[in-house]
Design a protein around this nucleic acid. Sequence first.
RNA 1: CGGGGCGUGGCGCAGCCUGGCUAGCGCGCUUGGUUCGGGACCAAGAGGCCGCGAGUUCGAAUCUCGCCGCCCCGACCA
Length: 564
Amino acid sequence: MRLSKTFIPTLKEIPSDAVIPSHQLMLRAGLMRQLTAGVYAYLPLGYKAMLKAIQILREEMDAIGGQEFHLPALNPESLWIKTKRRHIPNLILSIKERDLVLAPTHEEVVGWIAAMHIQSYKDLPQIWYQIQTKFRNEPRPRSGVLRGRQFIMKDSYSLDASWEGLDERYEAHAEAYRRIFRRSGLDFFVVGASSGAMGGSGSQEFMVDSESGEDTVARCKQCSYAANLEVATSGLAGIGRVPENNPVKEFPTPNVRTIDELATFLKTTDERLAKSVVYRHADTPLLILLVGNDQLNESKLSAALGEGAVRPIDAGELKSLTGADGGSIGPIGLKGFRIIADKRLENANGLISGANRNDHHVRNIDLQRDVHLDGYHDLRTVLPGEPCPTCGAPLIVANAIEIGHIFKLGTKYSEALNATFLDESGQSQPIVMGSYGIGVERIIACHIEQSHDEHGIIWNKVLAPFAVHIVAASMNNKETVLVANQTYRALSDAGIEVLFDDRASVTAGFKFKDADLLGMPLQVIVGERGLKEKKIEIKRRATGERTMVPADGVVNAVRSMLSE
RNA sequence: CGGGGCGUGGCGCAGCCUGGCUAGCGCGCUUGGUUCGGGACCAAGAGGCCGCGAGUUCGAAUCUCGCCGCCCCGACCA
């Protein structure tokens, strides 16, 4: 492409709305423009990069037997009512004129097609995928393209006759995803994840380490343990039992509200202080006991409780149910509450907790003896430095960007949509489904986050919109123009994608700055300086290293540099 | 949804507190000329319902109220 005829609006200054590097550079390099919050227009250069990523996705999905679909973005609302997903908060955008919604994902449509046409176990397995625009009612779009209301997803769906089959498809996807991200040149890692409200039995996320990430993950420095903080566990031991076991006893604790205040008041560590957190689950009041200042992890809580909305109880409700305010609540003498406890409290005794009477606590609580517990669950949030559950080394906790997520969905959607097949014994069975997503824009943005400098983007050769950026230093010098044109033709004829800065209106310095900003892997610089010796300069964007090559040897030189 | 910030030619900003004459600067854009290897120079130009609406006032970019939009932090995140 000749830059003089190409629409690549570069920006010298940083747009004030952009905060993170990928967002700034995607705007400055003319890859995209924002239309409204969370919605971006991709300009030719940005779209070209996305097509590169999409090509990799296609190849790797096809390689595991995936078949590409093009599915409707407009869905009847009724389809989503069937799967009970119509009214999930912040999920679906709808249109005003019809009972249609904009699809945020496509389990429903896939299930609908499967219900219609998958009849026998002989029709299974299937892997169906699509690379399309999806919509989400995102409450707060942010970080450029990393979190939008409209985005392009590669989503695939596996259909199987058995859970074993699902495991196979799931593994095939996990492997394909590793290849995809490796080929894209991303430095990524895989974490165990929450399947959240998607339902299902297993889930992993593909993550890129980044301060700008919106997910938080715990990782072990020593071994391969890594998990989203929503599900991460640590090897922290339970607090166990103490020898003396006296009867429970209430005692006054004036003006003590928090665990820290209680610890100070009693001049003790917080180990044997049991914190009470009060929630409602499907309208049942729920008391959750945690060790000391351990932080309740709501994702774990939801997962432990299963179906039904979970929310913190409000102060008024609490007072009327218990007669006390938050900070004075405990398991002893509490009526009408379901009580669960964190695993670290398993069978513990000698505990101190609220007395359900303001300014009073109870000591010597023995969970075995004194409390009717509805079970122990892992409910606490892991903190940095805690021992890895696998090897014991300290865990680190850091932000990350989710670039892919794979789910074992099971039969939740097939049952809701009546997508069944007849098994070998003629029994009707729900199809066992999996779902696997990759954010296309995030591949691009993450690559830029990981590969840029103060001058601009540094594309790798896989995602780069063009492999080579020719700079004709001056368009007023006849020989420069001649050789630059010859070089452009020769590289193009060799099948190399070339962007040729043939603009006569800007100076050489301007072109160099633009070339660094756009960041193609190789810059081929044609100018009088080199041509005096019949030579052309090749600059590697990544290292800045410059090589002089004979004018007629450029194609070979470029080829060999690109094949490194 | 809570908290904070911002909205002024295409982009980045000043002016607003303390109301006043023709709304200013840098970049970009147009025309002409000179330049031509790290975002050139000179000259002449074009381009603004100062986010929208109401109000206060002789007079509003500036003060008041309402609304809209965008960004950041939080909540949320299938």
